[in-house]
Nucleic acid binder design. Structure first.
Length: 135
RNA sequence: AAUGGAUUUCGCCUUGCCGAGGCCGAAAGGCUUAGGAAAGUCCGGGCAGCACAGAGCACCAUACUUCCUAACAGGAAGGCAGUCGGAGGGAAACGCCCGGCUGACAGACAGUACCACAGAAAACAAACCGCCGUGUCCCCCGACGCGGUAAGGGUGAAAAGGCGGUGUAAGAGACCACCGGCCGGCUGGCGACAGACGGUGCAUGGCAAACCUUAUGGGCUGAAAGACCAAAUAAGUUCUGAAUUCCGGGCGGCUCGUCCGGGUUUCGCCUUCGGGCAGAUGUCAGAACGGGUAGGUUGAUGGAGGGGCAGCGUGAGUUGCCUCCCAGAUAAAUGGCAGGGCAAAAGCGAAAGCUUUGGACAGAACCCGGCUUACAGAAAUCCAUUUGCC
RNA sequence: CGGGGUGUAGCGCAGCCUGGUAGCGUACUAGCAUGGGGUGCUAGGGGUCGUGGGUUCAAAUCCCGCCACCCCGA
C-alpha cells in the first residue's frame, strides 16, 4: 500500500535512450538553482503509468566529493517527494481532456555551493508550478 | 598528577512523522541496509577469458638475516649503521649501558662513465708556496740548476689511515705504542652477525634513487572480463563447400540404399542413347565485410569470513572446539525534516557554573590481504622526565 | 573502472633523458632618437621551478608520497 508521498524506483527516469531523448529534444529553462528539462512521450497502449518520471543530476565538476553530491541529490529528491501530490493534482486537472502523456522531467543542480533545504524546497515548488503550466 | 613519546581500540546516542533498496511471506507484516579509511588506485592474490614444447636474450620489479602468509614492494622478531635523550665514568676526546626514532641496508680490488668552481694535484697519484742537501754565479744576501721530501700553508663536499713519539739533512708506517682497517682459522648463533686470539705497516676515495653485476620473481588482458535470454543479424559485396536434380509409390537391414512412374534451367564436349564429364548461372549451407542491437538475467556477495574460549609461538601468526550470518545497489538504495541528550569548542567567571555554537575525515560499485593519504575527539596500556604524598 | 601526460617570470614556452650557470618571445620600468605618438636601439627589474620528503658535496633535473589540471579507452 503506497502512500501519496511515495517515490518508488519506477518513477525514476533511466536508460540511455530515455535520457538521450530528454536532453536531445526536451524543453529547458532556468529556475535557480535548477535547470529544468522536460519532454513528453506517448504512453504505449495498455500501460497505466501516469506519474511523471524524474531525473536528478549534480555536476561532478563542481562538487568533487561524492558525499556532497549525494546529499544535494537526496535533498532535491525529498523536496520533490513532499510536493508530489499537489503537482499530480495540478497536472491531472489540466490535461484530463487531452490525451494522457508520459512526462519526463530532469532537475540539474547548477549552483556552485550547497543551499539550505528550505530554499531548495521553495524553488522546487516554483519549478513544479511552471512545469504544470507549460505542459 | 602534569607534560612528552610509542602502540592499540573506538569514532555520537535517541524519539516522532514521511520515504528508498534487498530478503522472507498469499496477505497483513517481519528482518536488514553504508567505512576505518568505503578514498588514492600504489602493490599482491582469488576469479574469468585468451595463449602455451623446452631453453636463452630483452624488458619490468624486488634486495641485511630468519620467520609469517594464498601471495606481496606487506608484517613480526633480530642484526648492523646513524641520530636523539637519560644515568653513571672520565680533565677532555670518548667508548660502555638503557630507551626512543630513522635507514631503497646486496655488490665500487668485473668493467665503463662522472666528480662543476676552486686548487699544484680529483684517482694505474701529484709538487704551487714551502722544508732539506748540494752545484754554479769569488764570498754573504739572493738568483738559477740538480736531487730528496710530503711534516706545514692554502683550495675544496672530498687531498690518499688518525694521534703521539722514535728517527732524520729535512721527512716519511721507515720504526714503535694506542685507536681504526684488512686477512686467517677458532668459539657462540639456524642466520645476518658478534667475541676473543693470531697475523699484516696497511696509497688504491665518492657515486649503483648513473650505466651495470649477482640472486630471485613475472605469459597477456581485466567485471566495460566472461556466460545466457530477448531484440537484431535487412539490401549488397567477397570467399568456401554441397547436390547435380525434384515429386509420388513399393521393398529392405529405414538419417540410407534400390526399383517403378511422372516432372524438370541454359551452353560446350563425349556417348554403347540409359547417360557421363568440365565450368558458368541459379539454389542451399557456412564464414568475413557491411549493417543492426545498446534492454534484461547471471558473474555478485558464505568468505584466505567475523566473534569467543583453549593449546602452541618472544611475536607476526597458527591449530582445535563452540557460535554468528554481517549492504548487495545498477544514472545507482542505505535518506529528509523536527525535537531531546551526551562529548567538544568559544566567551564570561577565582571556582561552581552560565550563555552561544554543536560534531572530524568522508559514501560501497566483483571480492579479499596490505600500503599510502585525510581525520573533531574519546578511552586503555607501556616508557621517560618533573613535582607532590606515603 | 582502466591507461597516459603537464605544472618553470603577468602570459606563451625552452632547459630535465646526460645533476653544478635558470633562458627565449611578449608584457613592465628607465634612457636615447621624434615637435608628440608608434616603430627602432640600449640598459634594467621581476622566479617558493606545484607541494612534502629522500639520495648526493650539490636537485628545476634522479627516486618516493601528495595536490591541481588536461587527454584517451565503452
Amino acid at each position: 500500500m503506497k502512500g501519496p508521498f511515495s517515490f518508488p524506483k519506477s518513477e525514476r527516469l533511466h536508460g540511455k535512450k530515455a535520457v538521450d531523448l530528454l536532453f536531445g529534444s526536451g524543453r529547458a529553462w532556468l529556475v535557480y538553482p535548477f535547470r529544468v528539462v522536460i519532454s513528453e512521450t506517448e504512453i504505449p497502449e495498455g500501460a497505466a503509468g501516469s506519474a511523471p518520471k524524474i531525473l536528478i543530476s549534480v555536476s561532478k565538476k563542481i562538487f568533487k566529493k561524492a558525499h556532497d553530491r549525494n546529499r544535494i541529490k537526496r535533498q532535491i529528491r525529498e523536496a520533490y517527494r513532499t510536493q508530489k501530490p499537489a503537482f499530480i493534482s495540478q497536472l491531472s486537472g489540466r490535461s484530463s481532456k487531452s490525451l494522457p502523456k508520459q512526462i519526463n522531467v530532469g532537475f540539474i543542480y547548477i549552483a556552485k555551493t550547497q543551499e539550505a533545504f528550505s530554499l531548495i524546497s521553495a524553488k522546487m515548488k516554483r519549478a513544479l508550478n511552471e512545469i504544470a503550466s507549460r505542459v
